[in-house]
Every structure is written in structure tokens, then in C-alpha cells.
Write a protein that binds this DNA or RNA. Structure first.
Lengths: 188, 188
DNA sequence: ATATAATAACTAATGATATTAGTTATTACA
DNA sequence: TGTAATAACTAATATCATTAGTTATTATAT
């Protein structure tokens, strides 16, 4: 029998991230992952409960990483600068980790507390960044939803090749955010 | 041997839509579909090439249905009214057919001509509806991308339960569109 | 009406996947 | 050093998608 490969759940997750980022989310399987870790498929069950749990963990991990990227980008900035920085961080994260980004929207257990918590942290930065605009409190929250919709929508369509027109993507993205910011219902 | 069940590819697709709309996209399987049609699983291969082809057809069908709903809603309207109507149609379609909507983003063959064509028709309505605003031609196309991002993003987040705050969803949606329209870079 | 062709149903089999059960060897700990 | 824990293994199981081949139903030609 082989000596222990020194695998733990983090190793498993890292390798899973490599696979989905390189080959696509749909390509992840217990067999492929085990092979990448040089162990037999059933051995993986020593570290994770199964494929669903793995996907769930990837979703939580993805949200956490996204959050880190966003918060790093927005530090020290405010107003439009912060919104642009945070939005760019969002899109760049998704481009850099397309599999992991996709995982954030493919969690098998949508109501799991740790997932909710990770998602809420992402929401919270958006709230903070929009809070400096002179909006009603409730309006701010509506606008948070708006901005998040734009970020995710743009990313998702981009990832599925849905922007076919010969038009610069970064420019589209920038103009979209600009248009939204310009239209914010600032209190007078 | 059973008499012919009178099945054709349209019957198969309709039943598949029923299943994914009711049980969720991930629940679709050859076995489940065959059972719903009262035939044996291999018999399905007389009508469709396999699960991938089925999913591809669902994606194309979904885009077509979405297009019909959008165009129906926008007929006879222009400007902001058209945008709102078309946007509402989008979201309502997705709410009514959540599985079919999801299928539109889960096509196995992203570059298939019929899928591209169906997607482009959807894009074309958005282009038409935004064309009446006094924007540069190129800016219009950027804004088309923006609006599509918002529509899809909102829908996708909504479908995965990502809007957790106690805040009216329809109001968020309406305000998002309003904010975007208000910010459109109209030529002066 | 009859014979032939086409085809949609079936069964059996295959390969792949995720998972469970049980065994064994490695490692950790007392 | 001996025992317990655990991570590796193999074997088996259940499920799924698909292929291959057979059979019966239906369509078509005469």
C-alpha cells in the first residue's frame, strides 16, 4: 500500500480549483481529481464527503476569494473610484478563475450558512462602497442589487461567449458602470 | 412490444421543459425523461442524439421563447416604456420557466450556429429598443451589453436566492433599470 | 390487399461515474 | 513498544448514458 500522500481537505480543494479553472467546472469528477492527487477515487472520501460537498466548498471558497480581491481593490478609495476598482476586481477575478467563479453560482446547497455568510461579505463591500453616495438607505440597497446584477450578468455572459459584437469588452464594462453611476438617484 | 407512443422530437422537448421547470435543470436525465414519456431509455435515442443534444436544443428553444416573450411585450412601445416592458418580460419569462431560462446559459455547444442565431435575435430587440435614444451608434451597442448584463445578472442572482435582504425585488429591478436609463449618455 | 422498407419500440450489454463496505498499512499517540 | 486512529487500498454496488442488436409497428409501393 502506498505511503500517505499528505493530502488534506485544502490540498483537495486547491487541486479541484486547478482543474475547474483549467478544464471547466463541468469537467470536475471524483475520478479526475483522485488521479490528479495520485490516489484512488474512494480515498478521496477520507477528506471530503462526496462530490456535492466538494462543490459546496468550492462555492464558499470562491466567494471568499472574490471578496478578498474586491476588498483589496477598494481599500483607500471612495466614490466612483472605489466602485470602478471594485467592479474591475470582480471581473478580473472571474476571468482569472473562471471555474471557481462559476462554482460560486453552482452551489448544491443554496441555504448553507457558511455560503450565505461568504456571499453576505461580498454584498457588504458593495453596500459600503455605495454608502457614500447621497441616497436613501433603502435606495442604496436597491442600487447594491443593481450593481451586483451588472457585475454578475456581465461576467456570466462574457464567460459563455455571449458578447459577440466586435466591440471592446472593457470599454463596454466601463461604460455600463459609468452609466449606472451617472443615473444614481442622488438626493437633492 | 408496445405500440408506438407517437413521440417526436417536439414531444421530447416539451416533456424535458416540464421536468426542468418543475424539478430543476440538474434533475434532467435520460432515464427520468424516458419514464415521463412511458418509453424505455434507449428508445429516446430514436428522437435525440443524446443528453448533450437535448440540452443544446433546450438552450436554443429557451432563447427562442425568451425572444417571443420580449418582442410581444415591446410591440407598440418605444423609449423608456419599451425598455421597461421588455425588461419585465425577460424577468417574467425566467420566473415562469426557470429551468428553461437556465438552459439558455448551459448550452454544451456554445458556438453552434442555431444557438448563435437565437441569441442574436434576443440581442437585436434590445438593440432596437435602445436605438431610439440619442446615443452614438457604438455607445448604443455598449449600452445593449449593459442592459443585457443587468437583466441576466438580476435573474441569475434571483434564481440562486442571492437577494436575501428584505427588500422588494420588483422595486429593486425597476429602480435598477430606471437608474441605468437615467444615466444613458445621451448626445446633446 | 400484400409485400417490403423504414423506423420506433424493446432487451442486453457496455463503459463510466459516484459511492459504500471492508481490509490493510501507515502514522500518531500513550 | 503496543494500541488507536486514519488514510491508503480493493471489491462491490448502484446508477447513469449510450451502443448494439432484435422485434414489432407503421408507412409506402405495387
Amino acid at each position: 500500500m502506498a505511503p500517505r500522500a499528505g493530502i488534506d481537505v485544502d490540498t483537495v480543494l486547491q487541486k479541484a480549483v486547478e482543474i475547474i479553472d483549467r478544464d471547466g467546472y463541468e469537467d470536475l469528477s471524483i475520478g479526475k481529481l483522485a488521479k490528479a492527487l495520485s490516489i484512488r477515487p474512494p480515498s478521496l472520501y477520507n477528506h471530503i464527503g462526496g462530490l456535492s460537498e466538494l462543490k459546496q466548498r468550492l462555492a464558499v471558497l470562491g466567494c471568499g476569494k472574490l471578496y478578498e480581491q474586491m476588498i483589496r481593490a477598494a481599500v483607500g478609495l471612495s466614490g466612483d473610484d472605489a466602485v470602478y476598482a471594485l467592479s474591475l476586481a470582480y471581473v478580473y477575478f472571474a476571468r482569472q478563475h473562471r471555474g471557481l467563479y462559476e462554482a460560486t453560482f453552482r452551489a448544491p446547497y443554496l441555504h448553507a450558512p457558511d455560503l450565505k455568510e461568504a456571499q453576505e461579505k461580498v454584498v457588504q463591500i458593495v453596500v459600503q462602497v455605495l454608502a457614500v453616495y447621497e441616497l436613501d438607505e433603502e435606495t442604496t440597497l436597491h442600487m447594491v442589487r443593481g450593481l451586483r446584477s451588472m457585475l454578475h450578468g456581465f461576467t456570466s455572459i462574457e464567460q459563455t461567449g455571449g458578447f459577440g459584437l466586435p466591440l471592446n469588452l472593457d470599454e463596454s464594462f466601463h461604460m455600463m458602470i459609468k452609466t449606472f453611476l451617472k443615473g444614481l438617484p442622488i438626493k437633492k
